[in-house]
């Protein structure tokens, strides 16, 4: 391994749980361990973006609470729902999503404005998926708002988002924990923080049903990708899986401080090894 290996932080999908990445950031910052690149997917793209832009930890917490709260699901997309029943009359298409993205876009603009990937202090890649081909589409240029909006386009819930000539959806649909992006970019040490989607025991609405099916598929894809990249690559992948004794659902933003705490704790356990590996 090189004298100063390149270190990447990959934050996988996982909605509010991804806030644990801020705890990881805090622990690394305390030790003076710098990150050379950031990769985010779905919920993880929000945290990876705030960190890459050089916001302070307090700003990151404040901004993510602004971005990710229950208000973003309050407005239903009635036209889309009608299009599911009357596809011709209401022109069903790739813009189907049960929830309107108006509040989400407003929140994203409030935090990121017109910032682009060129404004980042640490190189950033955000994972998305091409709606039509299913291909993984890692974004590392253009507006950050567009990349995050595409990366969090959870199937059935939020509509696909057009970026350039591609129609993009949730990165978790193709690569929920994109450690391969970090490997491809030359990272030798990869801190991989990922989360399994919670699967409720009762499913009593169409939206919950959609979340549930999506969660099953994402969890299996996540495990397959993780297994493959661990087995075949030379890079040192350090899994950082925080323990959550409390149940954290999609919009439990009041649990952000707890998620940060658990992320910090899980990282602190790996600090001695990380220091040794980085020759610090």
């Amino acid at each position: 391994m090189a004298e100063k290996p390149r270190i990447a932080l990959v934050v996988g999908s996982g909605s509010v749980k991804c806030a644990a990445a801020l705890g990881l950031w805090k622990a690394l910052d305390h030790e003076g361990i710098p990150i050379d690149m950031l990769v985010g997917c779905s919920g993880g793209s929000i945290y990876a973006s705030t960190m890459s832009l050089g916001f302070s930890l307090d700003e990151c917490i404040e901004y993510t609470q602004t971005l990710w709260n229950e208000k973003v699901t309050n407005e239903k997309n009635w036209r889309a729902m009608l299009s599911a029943v009357f596809p011709k009359m209401f022109k069903f298409g790739h813009d189907f999503g049960m929830i309107s993205d108006r509040q989400m876009m407003k929140n994203l603009h409030q935090v990121f404005g017109d910032k682009t990937f060129a404004d980042t202090k640490i190189p950033l890649t955000i994972m998305t998926t091409d709606f039509y081909t299913g291909e993984q589409v890692p974004l590392s240029s253009g507006k950050i708002v567009d990349a995050i909006r595409a990366s969090i386009a959870i199937p059935f819930i939020w509509s696909a988002h057009r970026v350039g000539d591609r129609v993009l959806i949730d990165g978790a649909a193709s690569n929920p924990m994109p450690v391969d992006i970090a490997i491809k970019e030359g990272a030798e040490v990869i801190l991989a923080m990922g989360f399994q989607a919670p699967l409720p025991s009762k499913v009593r609405s169409v939206s919950r049903y959609a979340f549930h099916i999506n969660g099953i598929m994402t969890n299996n894809l996540y495990q397959s990708n993780f297994a493959f990249h661990n087995a075949v690559h030379h890079a040192e992948i350090i899994p950082i899986f925080p323990d959550f004794e409390r149940s954290i659902r999609l919009f439990d933003t009041d649990q952000i401080p707890y998620a940060i705490e658990q992320g910090e704790k899980a990282t602190q356990e790996q600090i001695p090894y990380i220091r040794k590996l980085l020759n610090l």
Partner: peptide, 12 residues
């Protein structure tokens, strides 16, 4: 438990 989680995630 921590190691078991990694083994499960990696499909072992």
């Amino acid at each position: 438990p921590g190691i078991d989680k990694v083994l499960k995630m990696a499909g072992f």
